[in-house]
Design a protein around this nucleic acid. Structure first.
Lengths: 255, 255
DNA sequence: CACATCTGTGTACGTGATACACATTGGCAT
DNA sequence: ATGCCAATGTGTATCACGTACACAGATGTG
């Protein structure tokens, strides 16, 4: 039971830890091909349409051939996540001040998930380890170096930012999806457009006063508000908090 | 094709929108039973073990009986999420100051997901609409009322907090899982304990300087650090940002 | 009492992941 | 050269699972 190429977990293969095999037939199918094909399918028809069979067919190989390069479908999904997110664009470092850079990073991040909503459907299986994910981490940390915070704080802040970004982006994308489903929808029933409308219809009166107040204020009726703008406002709140941390630590920032 | 009980989407059934049927045989199986059974299975053996067949068997009904109460498995999962998270405990309002309350809320939230990690495996399919989720929303918003911010800002801040919490919690739980998998693990290969170790082994030198700096500083070697403490620190950063927002808005808080 | 209607059941089907055994390939040691 | 062996790609088989469908029993209404 010699260890096959796929046994070195897909993720590790990404880092080219693969020692060249000395013997055996040379592969004609590559991990990169597989992931690329899977991405194309997901982009075209969504993640649900990505099956091992279909990926293989698109490449002109048998289904089982994939298993020579990927231990199982879960790993393939993880690889798709890393590849689908891609490397952070250099645009991010085009501006010069750390807050501005973070804003660009956030915007770009949102755009990626808007372009590939299926990324959110991938069950995350562990801490980020793919090359692209690490690249984002590197970019974020290097931006934060300008704050003057120490390494520990920088990581903490970055995790904070990442958590917020991913959570927000997920919310935006889900909302958009739900709206889309209701609009193009199948149910001939009232295709309610907004979260607000739905809540108004469902909630029993008097039980959730704080929510009702918000509904009454019309907060949930997404009035064409720009996702980007909202994301940026949330980001600013966090960045203000980071500045407070900097003050507490007695660092000044701006290099 | 009369509209069956299940056709009124599971989620809506939770709000007791069900008009009592005037005719037909009375149900002996209830939605609540189904969800409860599913929770028990997930608690015992993880979400992957929750199959329609197994849930039904546990209840002593046929598999297809479930479909009289739930339109499909996806809906069942959504219901499981709402039920699994549960209502926010009153502990949260036991303290008196809004920041303290948020800290309690965060701690409690983390504990829930630590107790039921499988909640994170449930694919979220839309904006939160279950009663318990709304209850959390209500709790959060009512805490924020003390800040003096207006309804719009309150919702925005709460979404910000929720995004952060969920993202962080996910990270913690994933880390714990990965560590556990490596420890109890199957691979007789080096069962690396920490993220730091793994990164050190994988990363090519020189390509990700900011990450390397962090690794060198030992930031990723999770030295028994308390998840709760880390969560609370991140939360404080955000809450500082919220206070900055309050200042900008010219409100004082503390009712 | 007949009817409409809903609940629960058994069976059947389709899909998808993946285990397994085999044919093939190509470098390496002799 | 030549024979060996590990690794690649294939075909077939299996198994689990979600769910469509048609039927049987129950139950309240006209």
């Amino acid at each position: 039971m010699a260890d096959s190429r796929a046994d070195r977990k897909g993720v590790e293969a990404l880092w080219r830890l693969e020692r060249q095999e000395e013997t055996g037939s040379r592969p004609t199918l590559s991990l990169a091909d597989i992931v690329a094909a899977a991405l194309e399918i997901a982009d075209a028809d969504g993640l649900a349409e990505v099956s091992m069979a279909r990926v293989a067919k698109r490449l002109g190989f048998s289904t089982m051939a994939l298993y020579r390069h990927v231990p199982n479908k879960g790993e393939l999904l993880t690889l798709m996540f890393d590849a689908g997110v891609g490397a952070p664009p250099s645009t991010i470092l085009a501006t010069s001040e750390w807050r501005a850079r973070m804003h660009v990073l956030a915007r770009v991040y949102l755009e990626i998930f808007q372009r590939r909503p299926w990324l959110l459907d991938i069950p995350i299986t562990g801490p980020p380890m793919g090359p692209n994910n690490i690249h984002w981490l590197d970019t974020g940390l290097s931006i934060l170096k300008e704050t003057g915070l120490d390494a520990g704080d920088r990581v903490e802040v970055f995790l904070l930012l990442t958590s917020y970004l991913l959570g927000s982006v997920r919310l935006f994308v889900e909302m958009a999806r739900a709206a889309e489903a209701a609009a193009g929808g199948g149910s001939p029933v009232a295709d309610e457009k907004g979260y607000g409308t739905a809540l108004r219809r469902l909630l029993p009166a008097g039980r959730f006063p704080a929510v009702e107040a918000a509904i009454a204020a019309g907060v949930f009726d997404d009035g064409e508000e720009d996702d980007v703008a909202e994301l940026q406002r949330g980001l600013d709140i966090i960045l203000d908090g980071v500045e407070a941390l900097m003050a507490r630590r007695g660092v000044t920032g701006e290099r």
